Simulated assay, not measured.
Amino acid sequence: RAACRAGASGTIGAGIMKKIKSAFSLGMGFFQARKLLSDLKPAVVVGFGGYPSVPAVYAAQTLKIPTVIHEQNAILGRANVFLAPKAAKIAVAWSHVEGLDAIDENRAIVTGNPVRPDISALYNKPFPTIEQDGTLRIFITGGSQGASVFSEVLPKALARLPDHHRARLDIVQQCREEDLPQVRAIYSEAGIQADLRPFFKDMSLQLERCHLVIARSGAGTVSEVTTAGRPAIFVPYPHHADQQQKRNADAVADAGGAWVMTQNGFTADALLARLETFLQNPETLFRAAENARSCGKPDAARKLGNIVMAMASGWDKHPQG
């Protein structure tokens, strides 16, 4: 057995009582995982971050079972900060991950974040043709739950564009169910072609067709957008304590593949200025697309699998810390 998944998990709640319950849950998860791992005797235990990974990975470390942890963001999460010192290998999504100390960096390997095969297949496909006065396709997604800020700002901003620019737009936007009627009405009145849905099951198709993505910058979204080689305006979710989405977005922006707008700065005026630049100079998007693609890791799943297999097979002997 190359790897196994084990046992109970826990999360850290807010408030004293929730923290006590969370600590108890983590402790129970640890002992359950330790028993299960003692019975299964896996060759390797792999954790993908977050508090649910702590009981099983930490139990494996106390049993001297080699562990691999994977960090999907550009900053090490709290769970992985705790687990990293005793991990045999640390798979990371970015060449620089904040929170790794010098010793941990020696065991870090850049794999990227695994994406679905239909997304990784986009890596070698060309950027869609965009003419000087041709159609500009914009794909707007707020993640699994949608983002109301996009429904509030984007339709009103796009409706303020000159007629000849509005006629060039082809908008595909994820909206929450409750936002759909209002958003649809604004686009219709402005004469803007728009495909509005609460959820998209055809992400690979939408990424393949679009010239620009406007999105949150969670690890999964950023990995898919960069693997597809699409330029993006990222609006990071502002309420994470470690600002993980901001750091993810900055990593792509630093490479020239994206523009970052804070939620407070994501106003109709600021967005209009940005979009008018793209409409007048579409080559800006073409150059950014290539820079975004340079951040993509289409073979992340293979790299991560190879790390685990090498450890499970004994080809990569690294003592557990």
Rank of each mutant, 00 (worst) to 15 (best):
P181K: 01
P231K: 06
C4Y: 01
D170P: 01
P231N: 12
G49R: 01
P319M: 07
A121E: 15
E283R: 09
R274G: 09
E290D: 15
D170K: 08
G229F: 02
D170A: 11
S95K: 14
A6V: 10
W315L: 13
A23Y: 10
V45F: 03
E208R: 11
L196W: 00
N80M: 04
V45G: 03
H318L: 07
Y58E: 05
A215M: 05
A2N: 10
K64D: 14
C295S: 14
A249P: 02
D170T: 02
E290N: 13
V54T: 08
N106M: 09
G99Y: 06
R197V: 08
A268W: 03
R287I: 15
N281S: 09
N291K: 13
L136R: 06
L83W: 06
D269E: 15
R197L: 11
D163E: 15
L169G: 09
L37H: 06
C175H: 08
V183R: 00
K317G: 04
N306Y: 03
R197H: 12
C295W: 07
A190P: 09
E131N: 14
N248H: 10
A249I: 07
P117G: 07
V225F: 00
A232H: 08
V110M: 09
C175E: 02
V97M: 03
S120D: 12
R160L: 15
V149M: 04
R230L: 13
V252M: 12
E105V: 03
V46P: 01
L36P: 00
F139K: 08
M311P: 01
N73A: 13
N80R: 07
A232F: 11
H96G: 01
G257M: 09
G256R: 06
V308R: 04
F200V: 07
K201P: 02
Q206E: 13
M28D: 04
E105I: 02
N113C: 07
A157Y: 07
F199L: 10
H164T: 11
V149I: 15
E290P: 02
Q263C: 02
Q72R: 05
K18E: 12
A241V: 10
V213P: 09
K18P: 05
D133C: 03
L100I: 08
H165G: 02
A102G: 05
S217P: 11
G229L: 11
Y237H: 06
N281V: 10
A194C: 07
I307G: 09
V153N: 05
A43Q: 13
D242M: 11
N281T: 12
A43V: 04
S95M: 03
R293Q: 11
S223T: 12
F278K: 04
V46E: 03
